[in-house]
Amino acid sequence: MTARRGGGPTMHDVGKLAQVSAMTVSRVLKNDPGVSQATRERVFAAVDQLGYRRNETARSLRLGGSGMIGLVVTNLANPFYSRLALGVQEVATEYGFRVVLSNSAEQVEKEPGLVDGLIDHQVEGLIVVPAGSRQKHLADAMRHVPVVLAARPPAGLDTDCVLVEDFHGAREATASLLAEGHTRIAFLGNPPALYTGTERLRGFWAAHEEAGVEPDNTLIRQGLVDAATAEQAAAELLDRADGPTALFCTNNRISHGAIRALHKAGTTIPLAGFDDFELSDVLGLPLTLVSYDADEIGRQAARLLIDRLDQRDGQPPAARRVTVPTRVIRHGPPSAGPGAGPRPLA
């Protein structure tokens, strides 16, 4: 029998004796009702035979590994990625893993070095939010460790990913503005090379098509990378005589920039956007926000990765795609409709 570095039997040992996976052992020890009685009895018999201590951490899922999971995000200053990281850490801690975090700062050329560095530090698996669509370095990494992608899908890779309902959320939020009578909606989006930017623009267009409204291409701005670029783009649009009567923003940083532009212009128009954010409910602005559980993206990604680690000695599962649902929430006063024109800020 293989002993753990601490000397005692591992959860993997229990699973081997009971002829189940270490993940199933973990579920039994947590009283998961989804496990059959026969399996529970085999696991508890193995626990008793081996003298496994159930208060040991679940780091015994691995055999002599480093106990570390690597996580690469694109912008840790963005609350979305902070929440995603907390979700990863929650599940990793549950299974006895530590998380090593790296930030690519949306720099595509920086990401391969971060991935290589984590592998050099002997992480047992990687969760990556890709900075771009060029992912050859991730294919190379997969020869060494399992890789799960979060928030953005694989490009030419056969691996797991966890995504948000980007298209559906954008379509629903845009449709709510159209239902209020807004036909001149500006689109403020992140770079089109990003999956989220493309999908959210697609949802924006789909809502217009379903409403029988032709979007004005002169009101579409893409390639915005932070609040400052979003503020500038929104200010230019608001300054036009034929400007928009509502705004759609593809993430929280862009929404922040657009709100600042509205404040400086001394006016307000309805704003819809992805990502709820702190204090959005007390700004007094007509906001329609696409909300979702960013922590759950991290939790799901960590579960997929740990499941692959648990199966690495057997037949690996087929690539899986998990989608986290979105919902639209409303804050502030109702929109007065486009006929009322922009309202001055109180």
Score class of each variant (00 low, 15 high):
A3E: 15
R4H: 13
P9G: 08
P9I: 09
G15M: 04
V25R: 01
S26T: 14
S26H: 08
R40A: 12
A45Q: 12
A46K: 01
Q49K: 11
L50D: 07
L50Y: 07
L61T: 04
R62M: 14
R62Q: 15
L63Q: 15
R98G: 14
V99H: 06
V99C: 08
G113W: 07
I119M: 08
I127V: 15
P130L: 09
P130G: 07
R134G: 13
K136R: 15
M142C: 05
A150I: 11
P154R: 05
P154A: 08
G156A: 12
V162N: 00
L163S: 02
D166P: 04
G169D: 09
T174D: 02
L177T: 01
L178Q: 02
A179N: 04
G181Y: 03
G181S: 00
L188W: 08
G197Q: 06
G203I: 06
G203V: 07
A207Y: 00
L219Q: 03
R221C: 04
V225W: 05
E231G: 02
L237N: 01
N252R: 15
S255C: 13
T267I: 13
A272F: 04
F274W: 11
D275Q: 11
L285N: 03
P286Q: 03
S291P: 10
D293T: 14
E296G: 12
I297D: 04
R312I: 14
G314W: 03
A318F: 06
R327N: 12
I329M: 14
A336I: 08
G339A: 12
R343Y: 06
A346Q: 14
